[in-house]
């Protein structure tokens, strides 16, 4: 049917399709593999049994809430010792416990955090041992 406004309608549809399929054509040709986290630090390499405070699956999903709970319990309630599920005891401290082993923030923490755009405000204050030395 003769319709002078077809041009505008098709333009609108094209804009809509382009907008909806944006992720498909943005960055086409670039390879975007998921990040591989590096556990290559002196402390981890020296460990005989390579185990974190809790298991990997738990840490991957819940380390933020875990650390938040540590912050509240340690700073606001003074309870500074944490008993892990397998019985070991740790001090509730990001810099003192976690970052002693995982001292390679850029190859470990940042890889995932940049991948999923998670920007915790922890690093506004907490120093990274390795970075200070640089």
């Amino acid at each position: 049917m003769k319709n002078k406004k077809w041009g505008l309608i098709i333009l609108g549809l094209v804009i809509f399709v382009l907008a909806i399929t944006f992720p498909f054509w943005y960055g086409k040709g670039r390879s975007m593999p998921p990040p591989v986290l590096s556990l290559d630090t002196p402390v981890i390499n020296a460990l005989t049994v390579k185990r974190c405070v809790e298991d990997t699956a738990f840490m991957r999903a819940s380390h933020m809430k875990f650390l938040n709970a540590w912050r509240d319990e340690a700073v606001r309630e003074g309870v500074r010792l944490y008993k892990a599920k397998d019985g070991r005891t740790f001090e509730k401290s990001l810099t003192g416990t976690c970052l002693q082993c995982h001292s390679n923030k850029e190859q470990f923490c940042d890889r995932c955090h940049n991948y999923v755009d998670a920007k915790p405000s922890c690093y506004n204050c907490h120093v990274i041992p390795g970075e200070v030395k640089k």
Partner: peptide
Amino acid sequence: FPADLNALKTLTMSWIT
């Protein structure tokens, strides 16, 4: 009930490719 975001984004990026 947090999910493993790394694995999630791996899935969604695999949809794109």
